[in-house]
């Protein structure tokens, strides 16, 4: 019976079906890429995040269009154009960490054995919560700032970080505090897993220095 064509074709068909089912099963384990396959909670978070981000983009677009109008009204060589450029330079230098800034925000005092990854995660959380400027003690952070384990202590941009240090964040104090202190959030995780004592306080006027790091690139050249 095993040797008959019907038997062989039957087994071949079953093997084919098993193969199809295995492929389908394998695919069902992958990360959902279609939006409709995401859980409702994740979709809601995504919509909220996109709405807020688009709001910021609309504001940025309106501001840059306003800047363009100022240039056009001033004329390319006039003293008004100089004022517009100076103000833009001040803003971009502050944004990039090349100029000192002051403003409302929060002070995070940390005492404990944080490792480099934990501190970078804390900084990432503050950026995600909308911090506009950050400093670890007297070191202003830039895009390139990374906490690393030095010979004796943690370091950031070449500056040592003591076991007790202060993280300063300029931004919406309520939003920053809420992001750090949410249940199961970064502070709860650090206090539980890294044995760090973290104290957060809102501050009316923080003053953050400019970075001491030279950000002028050597290998990257601007596209003309």
């Amino acid at each position: 019976m095993m040797g008959t064509p019907i038997a062989r074709w039957s087994l071949a068909l079953i093997a084919f079906l098993i193969g199809l089912a295995l492929v389908a099963q394998f695919r069902s384990q992958a990360r959902p890429v279609e939006l409709t396959s995401l859980p409702v909670a994740e979709l809601s978070t995504r919509i909220q995040t996109l709405s807020e981000a688009n709001g910021r983009l609309r504001t940025a677009l309106a501001e840059q269009r306003g800047l363009l109008a100022e240039y056009q009204a001033a004329g390319a060589q006039g003293s008004s154009a100089l004022d517009v450029s100076r103000e833009e330079l001040r803003r971009i230098r502050a944004y990039s960490g090349l100029a000192p800034v002051e403003g409302q925000g929060i002070t995070v005092q940390v005492s404990g054995a944080l490792d480099a990854i934990a501190l970078n995660d804390l900084i990432n959380e503050l950026r995600n919560a909308g911090a506009e400027a950050l400093a670890v003690d007297e070191t202003r952070l830039t895009a390139r700032s990374v906490v690393v384990q030095g010979a004796r202590t943690l370091e950031i941009d070449g500056a040592p970080i003591a076991r007790t240090f202060t993280l300063l964040a300029v931004g919406d104090p309520d939003g920053l505090v809420a992001a750090l202190q949410r249940p199961g959030g970064i502070v709860a995780q650090l206090e539980q897993f890294v044995s760090a004592a973290i104290t957060i306080s809102e501050t009316d006027t923080l003053r953050l220095p400019a970075t001491a790091t030279d950000l002028a690139p050597e290998a990257a050249t601007p596209v003309e």
Partner: peptide, 15 residues
Amino acid sequence: GSTGLRWAVPVEGSE
């Protein structure tokens, strides 16, 4: 994206 500063103010004379 947005490079606007809502909370941080450049310190005078920093340019």
